[in-house]
């Protein structure tokens, strides 16, 4: 396997480089782009980021594993990130999580056999006022109820994986 930047990403990163005092600043932006391209961070992608920024591969690996939004393994098409922190817990995140587990037939940390959904729990998503919430990939869903979760999953399943 190997990794090549898409020309758009490459151009964006080159432009971004001008904005910072050092190319080292590009680690996070570049890792985001790798993840966008591959769906996760492959070691080859990490190597490309090291090359771009002047850090070593190991250093970039250390960074990639520090941040919870970076994945070193492929994920389901939709990563369901259910907020588990206090305000959501006070407002029924437990019910939502149980409902998801039952409907998808998987536990937290698992992916459905068809590769569609990965179920995760995350810490406070900064939307405590609309608890309980969950983020599906980059989209926030608020005021969840078991019914709204069902509707949401139905729509996502219908899309058959195309984002």
């Amino acid at each position: 396997m190997s990794f090549t930047w898409t020309s758009a990403h490459r151009a964006e990163l080159d432009a971004l480089k001008e904005r910072y005092p050092s190319p080292k600043a590009l680690v996070l932006p570049a890792l985001w782009k790798v993840q966008e391209q591959e769906g996760f961070l492959s070691l080859e992608g990490i190597e490309a980021v090291a090359e771009l920024t002047g850090y070593s591969k190991a250093e970039v690996y250390g960074v990639a594993t520090f941040y919870t939004m970076f994945h070193l393994q492929p994920q389901g098409t939709y990563t369901l990130q259910v907020c588990k922190t206090l305000s959501c817990a006070l407002n029924g995140q437990g019910t939502i999580l149980d409902h998801l587990k039952e409907r998808l037939g998987i536990e937290v940390g698992e992916t459905t056999p068809d590769g569609q959904f990965t179920l995760t729990q995350v810490e406070c998503l900064g939307s405590c006022g609309t608890a309980p919430v969950m983020q599906v990939n980059d989209t926030l869903h608020e005021h969840l109820t078991p019914e709204s979760v069902d509707t949401l999953l139905d729509t996502l399943s219908d899309k058959g994986g195309s984002l």
Binding site: L28, W32, Y67
Partner: peptide, 11 residues
């Protein structure tokens, strides 16, 4: 010049 820098999940 103003640039947005995206974090990646770390309180």
């Amino acid at each position: 010049d103003l640039t947005v820098h995206r974090g990646a999940g770390a309180y």
